[in-house]
Amino acid sequence: MTLKLGRHEFADDATLMMAIVNRTPDSFYDQGATWAEDKAFDRVALVVEQGAEIVDIGGIKAAPGVEIGPDEEKSRVVDFVARVRETYPGLVISVDTWRAEVGRAACAAGADVLNDAWGGADPELVDAAAEHDAAIICTHTGGVTPRTRPYRIEYDDVVAAAIADTVAYAERAIAAGVDPRSVVIDPAHDFGKNTFHSLELTRRLGEMVATGYPVLVSLSNKDFVGETLDLPVGERLTGTLAATAVSALAGARVYRVHEVIETRQVVDMVNTIAGRRPPRRAIRGLQ
């Protein structure tokens, strides 16, 4: 399905790198490396140079921690969105928030996408997207409260649950007025899931792709990779890229990542193997 992400449209076969930009002091991977606004802006410049089509700007870490209210979240995100919008008019700006109030302010400042990592916890978020002709990422969390860790959650069939919930969320977004081309679904690895759930979702991602909605995967350095390989944060790139390859083969369209270059190479390689993309330049044996 063609993707329309706010001001930007992408062909049916386009794969997109969504680079994570944290305006947080405590996110699990970068530990506040881009907490300062100028550092975050430098990160945007870097990932744009590396070829990212999307930046995903977040003002609150996903894990439990200090309570951050809507005003504080907006103070971290909204002006920064405006600055990025002004500097990079061709860049897709996503904002990682579950709050409609924050989403509205971010879209008014120039955001194209609302990335709801918490599965529609705020039912008005779809209205915020519709009001601003923004795209929305519909994730599956199993209904958990934002910023909580999974605890003894089980599913009869985690893939069926993810499909049912994300498609229902997508249909609710469309009913609220979001452009059907602007709805993306995301199984949300690790969110409301144990490692076995995330592995099964990776293994059966093709079933989500078969819904017809573009699928986003957020795999980068997550705990399911770390537990699978018994590796700490900082040593999970190879495992992340392996999961990325499986997801690419299944047909995922958007990749939320810390490492843009490595992920792009894996996605391009897999899609070329799959016959969906030509080689960059082929002359061997054809001279």
């Binding site: 993309r277 030509p278 080689p279 330049r281 082929a282 002359i283 044996g285 054809l286």
Partner: peptide, 11 residues
């Protein structure tokens, strides 16, 4: 030159 053939076209 086989690289002139469309089935061998790259980007």
């Amino acid at each position: 030159v086989l690289a002139l053939l469309p089935e061998y076209a790259g980007l």
